[in-house]
Simulated scan of single mutants.
Amino acid sequence: MEIIRYAGLKPQPWRNGGGVTREVAAFRSPEADTAAPADIGAAPAVRGQDAGWQWRVSIADVSKAGPFSPFPGMDRVLTVIEGDLLLLSVDGVEHPLEKYRPFRFSGDAASSGTLPTGDVRNLNVITRSGAFKGYTSIVELSKKRAHPVFEGQLGILLQGQATVSPGIAVAGSGAEPDPASASGTDLPAGPETLERYDAVVGSDTATPEILGRGFLAVVSIDQVAGGL
Score class of each variant (00 low, 15 high):
186 D>C: 11
200 V>G: 03
190 G>P: 10
189 A>Q: 11
199 A>P: 10
192 E>P: 06
198 D>A: 09
191 P>H: 13
205 T>P: 02
189 A>D: 14
202 G>E: 02
191 P>D: 10
212 G>T: 07
185 T>N: 12
214 G>L: 06
194 L>T: 08
210 I>F: 02
188 P>D: 14
207 T>P: 00
205 T>Q: 08
206 A>I: 06
191 P>V: 13
183 S>P: 04
196 R>A: 09
204 D>F: 02
215 F>C: 09
189 A>G: 15
215 F>M: 10
210 I>K: 01
212 G>D: 02
203 S>I: 01
195 E>A: 14
210 I>E: 00
190 G>W: 09
205 T>H: 06
190 G>S: 12
210 I>D: 00
188 P>T: 12
184 G>H: 08
197 Y>F: 15
192 E>L: 14
210 I>Q: 03
196 R>C: 09
207 T>F: 01
212 G>S: 08
191 P>Y: 12
185 T>G: 01
193 T>I: 13
213 R>S: 14
215 F>Q: 10
203 S>F: 02
192 E>T: 09
197 Y>R: 13
196 R>E: 14
213 R>Q: 12
188 P>Q: 13
183 S>C: 11
192 E>S: 09
202 G>K: 03
203 S>K: 05
185 T>D: 13
199 A>S: 15
215 F>W: 10
213 R>L: 13
193 T>F: 07
206 A>M: 02
200 V>Q: 04
200 V>C: 05
191 P>S: 14
213 R>V: 14
188 P>V: 12
203 S>N: 03
184 G>M: 11
187 L>E: 15
195 E>W: 04
193 T>P: 01
216 L>W: 00
215 F>T: 08
216 L>N: 00
210 I>L: 03
200 V>S: 01
215 F>K: 15
201 V>Y: 03
189 A>F: 10
184 G>V: 10
208 P>K: 00
215 F>P: 00
193 T>G: 07
209 E>K: 04
198 D>N: 11
208 P>W: 00
216 L>I: 06
186 D>E: 13
207 T>M: 02
196 R>G: 08
203 S>W: 03
203 S>Y: 03
194 L>K: 09
205 T>E: 07
209 E>I: 03
198 D>H: 10
214 G>N: 05
200 V>I: 12
210 I>S: 02
190 G>N: 12
185 T>Q: 13
201 V>R: 06
186 D>G: 12
186 D>L: 12
184 G>I: 06
201 V>L: 05
192 E>H: 13
187 L>S: 12
192 E>I: 11
195 E>S: 15
210 I>H: 01
212 G>R: 04
213 R>D: 15
209 E>W: 00
212 G>H: 05
